[in-house]
Amino acid sequence: MHPAPSVIIFTSLSGLGFGLLFWLGLGQPAPTGWVGFGFFFIAYALAVGGLMASAFHLGHPERALKAFTQWRSSWLSREAVAAVATLVTMGIYAALLVFAGIHVAPLGWIGAVGCLATVLTTSMIYAQMKTVPRWRHWSTPALFLALSLGGGALLSNNGWAALVLLTVAAVLQLVAWFTGDTRLARSGTDIGTATGLGGRGAVRQFEPPHTGTNYLLREFVHVVGRRHAQSLRVISFGLAFVLPVLVLALGLTHVTAAIAVLSHLAGVFALRWLFFAQAEHVVGFYYDKR
């Protein structure tokens, strides 16, 4: 799959933003005044910034309001509804907390559940794709949630929670990689079933249908850069999990916390790039490419 920067930025930033909002909604912490403003500003900048980036991915962003209508059937529509409902709920909670010093705990809990729902719906957009066997697995939503909550815990200074959740996320990431690498081969789809000719012999592409490229090849058959995937896996794993967990285990100061957050964010960006770049869409079989 083509690793579009807009989608990588969107899933990474809004995942972190909603993760931070989750902890703020739980009241861990429940800051008031300027400190509270700072916390909520960062959370909203990440969450809304991510959503704005995703709008750049659209061919017709001016029609985006229509995307709120099909929540009965579409995970993308559910995500849009969940994101806006959560941001509105948490906005009211934040305004009361920051400007009036009133902590309406149940409203925060509702918002926290909304954060989980938003991240879950985002991950289900990918996990639902039968056409991308690597993504169609329980580890996709589990990893998205663990990364979001772990990153949020890191940002909200919940050291122990961050330590546990980032460790869980690291294990889930390994599960996703090791099971995902063979899932396309195990899916039963190959050039033989794609063409229906597999029973007759070995099928290979003789001539492509067009000499130039097209939308399908650009969007779904991303081969460039996979060469460096293994080294990028090691780097991203170190940045997203190992370094932050080490820093957390040694104890947080303002400086080390900043290092942990920046390292984690860089790692998540790289992980998301791999999430898309390494995902193979079955349409590639028609072009005899992965």
Binding site: H57, L58, H60, A67, K130, T131, E219, V282
Partner: peptide, 26 residues
């Protein structure tokens, strides 16, 4: 007129039957 050009339907199609128009973005 309702298509926002998100491309998700093309992702969901195993056959590559849908292509985004490069000019109209639908």
């Amino acid at each position: 007129t309702d298509c926002i050009g998100c491309g998700l339907c093309a992702w969901a199609c195993p056959y590559g039957a849908r292509e985004m128009d490069p000019v109209e973005q639908v």
